[in-house]
Computed example of a mutant assay.
Amino acid sequence: MRVRKLQQPRGWAFTVGAMILKPLFFLTTRPDWVDGTKIPATGGCIVVINHLSYVDPLTAAHFCYDHGRLPRYLAKSGLFRNKVLGFFLRGAGQIPVERATAGAVGAYDAAVAAVNAGECVVVYPEGTLTRDPDLWPMKGKSGAARIALATGAPVVPVGQWGAQQLLAPYSTKPHLFPRKTIHVLVGDPVDLADLAAKPLDAAVIAQATDRIMDAVTELVARLRDEDPPAERFDPRRAGVAEIGNPTQQPRTRDAG
């Protein structure tokens, strides 16, 4: 496992977070970081990673930090409404997202600005915890592709596995012991060069999104040593709510 030293100033929020979380992760997890140096050491980039657990932003932050980057997240706006947590998130430069509303455009603009300013922006391209019954990456949202095509920055795919054992999807009760291994595998940047040269329409964005999800899924398959489903799970077709806890919401019929 190779790591890199952080070269940019941490700021107070990351300093406090590292002081609290690093010892906690040392006690409760074993990091299995593979090819983390494929994340650029400097410059704007978009890290795309599958989403398994509420703890994912913390384990991904640990991973990025160990490889010399401070992650900037697109985080759901509800987290910012808590005064203490919101103060911390803003101090760490995180970006609030009003999911499924017109306000999401502001988050997109902020993410593009952050990438263009040389930041490492972490995006969960599924938009929420996977709804796939076996926790495979599901159908992606277009946000990561839009940011990538707007900035021309490298899109670095990341597969992760093991966080769900530390904190199961939608659970608030962690299983801290015995220590859980958090597997993270980084792939080569997703090639979107041919799409960047085309007019930015729905078909191009869909192609870019599929390439991103294909790359992430392939990495997860390698970590699990299993074949992924032939077709990615689509919450809309399955009649599953796209945001919120799907186990606490009624199913809806497929609108076609």
Rank of each mutant, 00 (worst) to 15 (best):
A13P: 03
A13S: 13
G17H: 11
G17Q: 09
A18P: 03
A18R: 13
I20E: 03
L21N: 08
L24H: 00
F26Q: 11
L27D: 01
T29L: 09
I39K: 05
I39P: 05
G43I: 13
G43P: 13
G44T: 01
I46Y: 04
N50I: 11
N50W: 07
N50K: 11
L52Y: 06
S53W: 08
V55T: 07
T59M: 11
T59A: 09
A61P: 10
H62D: 14
H62R: 13
F63T: 01
C64F: 06
Y65V: 13
R69F: 10
L70G: 02
L70H: 02
R72H: 15
S77C: 12
G78C: 12
R81M: 14
R81H: 15
N82Y: 14
G86R: 04
F87N: 06
F87A: 14
R90G: 11
Q94E: 04
Q94W: 02
E98F: 13
E98R: 15
E98G: 13
E98C: 07
A100W: 11
T101C: 01
V105P: 01
G106E: 08
V112L: 07
A117F: 12
C120I: 08
V121W: 02
Y124I: 02
E126S: 09
T128Y: 09
R131H: 12
P133V: 10
L135Y: 15
L135W: 15
P137D: 14
M138I: 08
G143A: 14
R146M: 00
A150W: 08
A150V: 08
T151C: 09
A153T: 02
A153D: 00
P154I: 04
V155W: 00
V155E: 00
V158R: 10
G159E: 04
G162C: 12
Q164A: 11
Q165H: 15
L166I: 09
L166K: 07
L166A: 06
Y170Q: 12
T172I: 09
H175F: 05
H175E: 10
P178G: 01
P178H: 04
K180H: 12
K180D: 00
L185F: 12
V186F: 05
P189G: 10
V190Y: 00
V190D: 00
K198Y: 03
K198H: 03
D201H: 11
I205Y: 00
A206K: 00
A208S: 06
M213I: 06
M213V: 03
M213C: 06
R222I: 07
D225K: 13
E226P: 02
P229K: 08
A230W: 10
A230F: 09
R232F: 02
A241W: 08
T247H: 15
Q248I: 03
Q249T: 10
Q249D: 05
R251T: 03
T252Q: 12
R253D: 12
A255W: 05
G256S: 06
G256L: 05
